[in-house]
């Protein structure tokens, strides 16, 4: 109460000396967007684990074939369908890598291969599965990266333009997508194989033709959603041009969806290749991909489980680590997630 009675007069006030610069002075070391993202990516345990697994798989994919004395197509049917056997570890019974098959017969003794070790066993043609699995990993990874790249480039651009432009452009572009999806892609793929012969090139082209539509539709949906939001309108009012709005305002906001969609594209592409192998149009033998190895091995699941086990585990590891990495990336890059 007594405070009120105190009289305020101008003498009590003095202009403060404030330098504009001082208040804006950056005392912390500056971090760019990407530095910041990297820091947050490495803080995320999951994504670090994902990165490490991918690195290890990549390493093996290129080193693995060198480690074995056999080439990926060295056949010898006298050593067909051997179960896996690894030195030292074979002594540890419960690991099941002692060369004894599921019927309890040591196939290495049966087939006079006592001195040999096939880490992942051998297939029906007596080929070293270890080499084949890692060779297959190379191909599957190539397909995975390729598919993701196509999605990123074609899918995102197409969807963004379609959604942002709207109106007639959107209408026409969406009808084109409908046509692309409507024409049975199996026919298109068979035609490509006729022209180009089966192999990595035909698979690449079929992916380019058909792989991007889902991404385009997702991105379009997101752009439609963002287009009328306040911050975009604000930016427009302030005179930002379309490309700035798209790259600076919209892109960071749809990054989450893009990454998630890519995480689906990768397994889809790997399985698409497996499906093509399934109907005999995939990678030309004797080359194999992880998908075609799983496909082939699955038939002997009940009797030679090792043929399907290793490629399936590696596919799953690849997927899981890509997903972990993807989650980390999204959190790291998404401005809204910044805390």
């Amino acid at each position: 109460m007594s405070m009120r009675e105190k009289q305020l007069n101008n003498d009590l006030f003095q202009p403060a000396v404030i330098s504009m610069e001082a208040s804006e002075k950056i005392t912390e070391e500056s971090t760019s967007f990407w530095q910041d993202a990297r820091r947050r990516l490495f803080e995320n345990k999951g994504s670090v684990a994902g990165l490490i697994i991918i690195a290890v798989i990549l390493l093996f994919a290129f080193l693995g074939p060198v480690l074995s004395q056999y080439g990926f197509d060295d056949q010898d049917v006298s050593r067909a369908n051997l179960p896996p056997r690894i030195p030292v570890l074979e002594k540890v019974g419960f690991l099941g890598i002692d060369g004894v098959d599921i019927r309890g017969v040591n196939q290495y003794e049966m087939k006079n291969q006592k001195d040999n070790y096939y880490w992942f066993g051998t297939d029906a043609l007596g080929r070293d599965q270890f080499v084949r699995v890692w060779k297959g990993t190379q191909i599957s990874l190539y397909i995975a990266f390729l598919a993701a790249a196509i999605d990123m480039v074609i899918g995102v651009a197409y969807g963004a333009i379609s959604g942002y432009r709207g109106g007639r452009t959107d209408n026409i572009m969406q009808r084109i997508i409908e046509i692309v999806i409507g024409i049975p892609n199996l026919i298109v793929i068979i035609l490509f194989i006729l022209i180009l012969e089966p192999g990595i090139l035909s698979i690449t082209i079929s992916l380019v033709i058909t792989g991007w539509t889902t991404m385009a539709r997702i991105v379009r949906g997101q752009i439609l959603k963002l287009k009328n939001q306040e911050f975009v309108m604000a930016s427009q009012t302030l005179g930002a041009n379309s490309s700035r709005i798209l790259t600076k305002h919209m892109f960071p906001n749809i990054l989450g969806s893009i990454i998630i969609t890519s995480m689906f594209t990768i397994p889809n592409a790997i399985f698409f290749e497996a499906f093509l192998s399934f109907i005999g149009l995939g990678i030309a033998p004797p080359t194999a991909s992880l998908g075609s190895l799983v496909n082939e091995g699955f038939k002997s699941l009940q009797i030679y489980p090792h043929l399907v086990l290793y490629p399936a585990v590696i596919i799953s590891l690849i997927m899981i680590s890509f997903n972990l990495l993807g989650d980390g990336l999204r959190d790291a890059l998404d401005p809204k997630m910044r805390k």
Binding site: P267, F271, A274, V294, N295, A312, I315, S316, M319, I320
Partner: peptide
């Protein structure tokens, strides 16, 4: 993740 990593035929 497992749902999309395991091929449907497996």
């Amino acid at each position: 993740v497992l749902g999309i990593s395991i091929p449907s035929f497996v």
